[in-house]
Design a binder for these strands. Structure first.
Length: 289
DNA sequence: TGTTACAACAAGCTCCAGCC
DNA sequence: GGCTGGAGCTTGTTGTAACA
């Protein structure tokens, strides 16, 4: 899928951007940019698409994304309802290698940062003690200016580079291509997110993308490294797992709530994805509580 | 209520041609 | 050369029915 190219405007006197966002929901479509990005979700929940990766996010979710890695944070449906008082807040830092200074990365002392930047092409989740430290520094950074802000960025990068609590988000780098493709894919994502609980077809998605079915299938697989049906299934099974844990609905009810029309198919897919059937999944989770 | 086997069909893949 | 669409074949998904 191809995200839109997006830049945050720089502030005068700064070589990189720090923003505290506060929206009713995150408005940014599927997009990419040449800057590195550190993003901390401080309020709101939803699903995040990063490269070919799909998962839930919530407050505290912290990621470091390399340049041109396509991504999209989409809030839960309740954020889009009229009259919703929910807020979507985050702290976002955008910077380039040039923000660190000409030839900075050529220094022998910067070897770890060079390695970190290479790893960030797959996107990095930041956890453990590093997570707490980086969160604190990001909150602090918002109130800093000038060289202190710059030193804070370097400190954060060093903290991440030396951490053992950092994991790759995607298996291999995936970069954005052009704005037309990005918008096309973004439109399809939005449509899937709004409709995956119902019967949806590749042909409908192809129509939204204004493509022939074959071309769309190839395009979707190429850009997301997932088949269209595989992508929809992943969304449905993630919802099913959540319903099994959070509700007392029967497995059959969960099955229909998630867009499946057939309990046998649902069981089979669930077993394949989670390596256990829905009942066992629920029992395992409840026992662990 | 959940699981499994099987047949039908939709989706995916590959090759090729046409267009820009 | 790259992108798109058509055709045909393969593969995967789904629904039905039977059974535990």
């Amino acid at each position: 899928m191809k995200p839109a190219l997006e830049h945050l405007p720089k502030e005068p006197g700064h070589s990189f951007v720090v923003r505290n966002f506060d929206y009713s929901y995150y408005p940014t479509p599927w997009h990419y940019h040449p800057e590195y990005e550190i993003v901390l979700v401080t309020e709101s929940t939803g699903k995040r698409f990063i490269g070919d990766h799909l998962s839930d996010f919530g407050p505290g979710n912290l990621a470091f994304l390399g340049p041109n890695l396509p991504h999209h944070y989409r809030n839960d449906d309740r954020y889009y309802e009229a009259g919703s008082v929910l807020r979507a807040k985050s702290i976002v830092v955008h910077f380039t290698e040039a923000s660190l200074g000409k030839d900075f990365l050529e220094l022998p002392e910067a070897a770890r940062l060079r390695k970190l930047f290479e790893r960030s092409l797959c996107g990095l989740d930041i956890n453990g003690k590093t997570h707490r430290k980086v969160c604190d520094r990001l909150h602090e950074m918002s109130g800093l200016a000038g060289l202190k802000r710059w030193l804070c960025l370097v400190d954060i990068l060093l903290e991440i580079a030396e951490s053992g609590s950092v994991t790759a988000i995607t298996k291999s780098p995936l970069v954005g291509y052009n704005e037309k493709e990005s918008r096309r894919l973004g439109d399809v994502f939005d449509w899937i997110m709004a409709n995956f609980e119902h019967d949806i077809r590749l042909s409908e998605a192809a129509a939204i993308a204004e493509m022939n079915e074959n071309a769309f299938s190839r395009f979707f697989s190429l850009r997301t490294r997932k088949t269209f049906s595989g992508f929809v299934q992943e969304l449905r099974l993630q919802k099913a797992a959540r319903l099994l844990i959070e509700n007392e609905l029967s497995v059959t009810e969960v099955c229909y709530e998630c867009g499946y029309n057939n309990i046998s198919n649902f069981n089979r897919q669930f077993l394949h994805h989670y390596h256990m059937n829905p009942m066992k999944y629920r029992r395992t989770f409840l026992k662990g509580k």
